[in-house]
Amino acid sequence: MVYTPWCTVLGMSIGQTFLGLLESSPRHGYDLKRAYDERFGRTRPLPYGQVYATLSRLLKSGLVEVDSVEPGEGPERKRYAITEAGVTDVDRWLSQAEKPEPYLQSVLYTKVVLALLTDRPAADLLDTQTAEHLRLMRELTRRKDGGDLAEQLICDHALFHLEADLRWLELTAARLDELAREVRSHG
Protein backbone atom coordinates (compact mmCIF):
# COMPACT_ATOMS: atom_id res chain seq x y z
CA MET A 1 0.00 0.00 0.00
CA VAL A 2 1.33 3.46 -0.90
CA TYR A 3 0.65 6.08 1.75
CA THR A 4 -0.24 9.54 0.52
CA PRO A 5 0.82 12.45 2.71
CA TRP A 6 -2.15 14.40 4.02
CA CYS A 7 -1.17 17.62 2.24
CA THR A 8 -1.39 15.90 -1.16
CA VAL A 9 -4.77 14.45 -0.30
CA LEU A 10 -5.94 17.83 0.90
CA GLY A 11 -4.44 19.51 -2.18
CA MET A 12 -6.67 17.39 -4.35
CA SER A 13 -9.77 18.68 -2.60
CA ILE A 14 -9.10 22.43 -2.32
CA GLY A 15 -11.46 23.11 -5.22
CA GLN A 16 -14.29 21.21 -3.57
CA THR A 17 -13.54 22.85 -0.23
CA PHE A 18 -13.86 26.27 -1.89
CA LEU A 19 -17.15 25.21 -3.44
CA GLY A 20 -18.43 24.11 -0.04
CA LEU A 21 -17.44 27.41 1.52
CA LEU A 22 -19.06 29.33 -1.35
CA GLU A 23 -22.24 27.30 -0.98
CA SER A 24 -22.57 28.53 2.59
CA SER A 25 -22.26 32.15 1.25
CA PRO A 26 -20.78 34.02 -1.77
CA ARG A 27 -17.35 35.52 -0.97
CA HIS A 28 -14.53 37.59 -2.38
CA GLY A 29 -11.26 35.77 -3.10
CA TYR A 30 -9.65 37.29 -0.04
CA ASP A 31 -12.54 36.27 2.25
CA LEU A 32 -12.48 32.78 0.80
CA LYS A 33 -8.79 32.40 1.61
CA ARG A 34 -9.36 33.74 5.11
CA ALA A 35 -12.26 31.34 5.72
CA TYR A 36 -10.21 28.43 4.35
CA ASP A 37 -7.13 29.24 6.44
CA GLU A 38 -9.22 29.74 9.56
CA ARG A 39 -11.04 26.41 9.25
CA PHE A 40 -8.68 24.07 7.44
CA GLY A 41 -5.26 25.64 6.96
CA ARG A 42 -4.23 26.92 10.36
CA THR A 43 -0.76 25.45 10.11
CA ARG A 44 -0.50 25.73 6.32
CA PRO A 45 -2.20 28.88 5.00
CA LEU A 46 -3.00 28.84 1.28
CA PRO A 47 -0.80 31.00 -0.93
CA TYR A 48 -2.78 33.72 -2.83
CA GLY A 49 -1.54 32.34 -6.14
CA GLN A 50 -3.21 29.00 -5.42
CA VAL A 51 -6.45 30.72 -4.33
CA TYR A 52 -6.84 32.62 -7.61
CA ALA A 53 -5.61 29.72 -9.76
CA THR A 54 -8.22 27.46 -8.14
CA LEU A 55 -10.99 30.08 -8.56
CA SER A 56 -10.09 30.55 -12.20
CA ARG A 57 -10.26 26.77 -12.76
CA LEU A 58 -13.66 26.61 -11.03
CA LEU A 59 -14.91 29.56 -13.17
CA LYS A 60 -13.77 27.86 -16.36
CA SER A 61 -15.56 24.63 -15.48
CA GLY A 62 -18.76 26.53 -14.66
CA LEU A 63 -18.81 25.49 -11.00
CA VAL A 64 -18.66 29.10 -9.76
CA GLU A 65 -19.66 32.46 -11.28
CA VAL A 66 -18.87 36.08 -10.58
CA ASP A 67 -21.73 37.34 -8.46
CA SER A 68 -20.79 41.03 -8.46
CA VAL A 69 -17.84 43.30 -9.22
CA GLU A 70 -16.96 46.21 -6.95
CA PRO A 71 -14.51 48.91 -7.99
CA GLY A 72 -11.72 49.36 -5.42
CA GLU A 73 -8.66 51.49 -5.03
CA GLY A 74 -6.54 48.87 -6.79
CA PRO A 75 -7.97 46.14 -9.03
CA GLU A 76 -11.74 45.43 -9.08
CA ARG A 77 -13.02 43.12 -6.31
CA LYS A 78 -14.98 40.15 -7.64
CA ARG A 79 -17.45 38.31 -5.48
CA TYR A 80 -17.79 34.60 -6.33
CA ALA A 81 -20.90 32.45 -5.95
CA ILE A 82 -21.45 28.75 -6.48
CA THR A 83 -23.53 27.60 -9.49
CA GLU A 84 -26.07 24.74 -9.64
CA ALA A 85 -23.35 22.57 -11.19
CA GLY A 86 -21.08 23.51 -8.28
CA VAL A 87 -23.69 22.44 -5.71
CA THR A 88 -24.06 19.12 -7.54
CA ASP A 89 -20.28 18.70 -7.43
CA VAL A 90 -20.16 19.34 -3.66
CA ASP A 91 -23.04 16.94 -3.20
CA ARG A 92 -21.25 14.21 -5.13
CA TRP A 93 -17.96 14.77 -3.28
CA LEU A 94 -19.53 14.78 0.19
CA SER A 95 -21.65 11.70 -0.45
CA GLN A 96 -18.77 9.65 -1.89
CA ALA A 97 -16.60 7.64 0.51
CA GLU A 98 -12.90 8.45 0.41
CA LYS A 99 -10.62 5.58 -0.45
CA PRO A 100 -9.52 4.49 3.03
CA GLU A 101 -5.93 5.56 3.55
CA PRO A 102 -4.01 6.54 6.62
CA TYR A 103 -3.69 10.26 7.37
CA LEU A 104 -6.90 11.26 5.64
CA GLN A 105 -8.54 12.67 8.74
CA SER A 106 -7.97 16.16 7.37
CA VAL A 107 -10.19 15.42 4.37
CA LEU A 108 -12.75 13.71 6.57
CA TYR A 109 -12.73 16.59 9.02
CA THR A 110 -13.23 19.06 6.17
CA LYS A 111 -16.14 17.01 4.83
CA VAL A 112 -17.80 16.85 8.26
CA VAL A 113 -17.50 20.62 8.81
CA LEU A 114 -18.82 21.40 5.33
CA ALA A 115 -21.71 18.97 5.74
CA LEU A 116 -22.65 20.74 8.99
CA LEU A 117 -22.23 24.17 7.41
CA THR A 118 -24.49 23.29 4.50
CA ASP A 119 -27.11 21.45 6.61
CA ARG A 120 -26.35 18.03 5.13
CA PRO A 121 -26.58 14.88 7.28
CA ALA A 122 -23.04 14.69 8.69
CA ALA A 123 -23.86 11.50 10.64
CA ASP A 124 -24.65 9.70 7.37
CA LEU A 125 -21.32 10.84 5.95
CA LEU A 126 -19.54 9.32 8.98
CA ASP A 127 -21.53 6.09 8.62
CA THR A 128 -20.71 5.81 4.91
CA GLN A 129 -17.03 6.23 5.69
CA THR A 130 -17.20 3.75 8.60
CA ALA A 131 -18.80 1.16 6.30
CA GLU A 132 -16.07 1.68 3.70
CA HIS A 133 -13.32 1.30 6.31
CA LEU A 134 -14.93 -1.86 7.71
CA ARG A 135 -15.29 -3.31 4.21
CA LEU A 136 -11.58 -2.84 3.56
CA MET A 137 -10.71 -4.29 6.98
CA ARG A 138 -12.74 -7.43 6.17
CA GLU A 139 -10.91 -7.72 2.86
CA LEU A 140 -7.50 -7.39 4.57
CA THR A 141 -8.43 -9.97 7.24
CA ARG A 142 -9.37 -12.48 4.50
CA ARG A 143 -6.12 -11.72 2.69
CA LYS A 144 -4.18 -12.21 5.90
CA ASP A 145 -5.81 -15.58 6.47
CA GLY A 146 -4.39 -17.08 3.30
CA GLY A 147 -1.06 -15.25 3.38
CA ASP A 148 2.42 -15.95 4.72
CA LEU A 149 3.83 -14.07 7.72
CA ALA A 150 5.12 -11.16 5.62
CA GLU A 151 1.71 -10.75 4.01
CA GLN A 152 0.06 -10.99 7.45
CA LEU A 153 2.29 -8.27 8.88
CA ILE A 154 1.72 -5.97 5.90
CA CYS A 155 -2.03 -6.43 6.31
CA ASP A 156 -1.78 -5.90 10.08
CA HIS A 157 -0.04 -2.59 9.53
CA ALA A 158 -2.88 -1.40 7.32
CA LEU A 159 -5.50 -2.85 9.71
CA PHE A 160 -4.13 -0.94 12.69
CA HIS A 161 -4.15 2.33 10.74
CA LEU A 162 -7.69 1.75 9.59
CA GLU A 163 -8.71 0.94 13.15
CA ALA A 164 -7.26 4.26 14.30
CA ASP A 165 -9.31 6.06 11.64
CA LEU A 166 -12.40 4.23 12.83
CA ARG A 167 -11.82 5.33 16.40
CA TRP A 168 -11.62 8.90 15.14
CA LEU A 169 -14.86 8.43 13.18
CA GLU A 170 -16.60 7.03 16.27
CA LEU A 171 -15.36 9.85 18.48
CA THR A 172 -16.43 12.48 15.95
CA ALA A 173 -19.87 10.87 15.66
CA ALA A 174 -20.20 11.08 19.44
CA ARG A 175 -19.23 14.78 19.38
CA LEU A 176 -21.20 15.79 16.31
CA ASP A 177 -23.78 17.92 18.12
CA GLU A 178 -21.04 19.80 19.93
CA LEU A 179 -19.13 20.35 16.66
CA ALA A 180 -22.31 21.48 14.88
CA ARG A 181 -22.90 24.17 17.53
CA GLU A 182 -19.31 25.35 17.24
CA VAL A 183 -19.22 25.38 13.43
CA ARG A 184 -22.55 27.21 13.11
CA SER A 185 -21.68 29.80 15.75
CA HIS A 186 -18.66 30.80 13.62
CA GLY A 187 -20.89 31.28 10.54
Partner: peptide, 10 residues
Amino acid sequence: ARVASYSDRE
Protein backbone atom coordinates in the same frame (compact mmCIF):
# COMPACT_ATOMS: atom_id res chain seq x y z
CA ALA B 1 -13.13 -3.23 14.50
CA ARG B 2 -10.31 -5.74 14.04
CA VAL B 3 -12.41 -8.43 15.73
CA ALA B 4 -15.45 -7.45 13.66
CA SER B 5 -13.42 -7.79 10.47
CA TYR B 6 -13.68 -11.60 10.81
CA SER B 7 -17.42 -11.33 10.12
CA ASP B 8 -19.42 -11.34 6.87
CA ARG B 9 -21.08 -8.03 7.74
CA GLU B 10 -21.36 -5.54 10.57
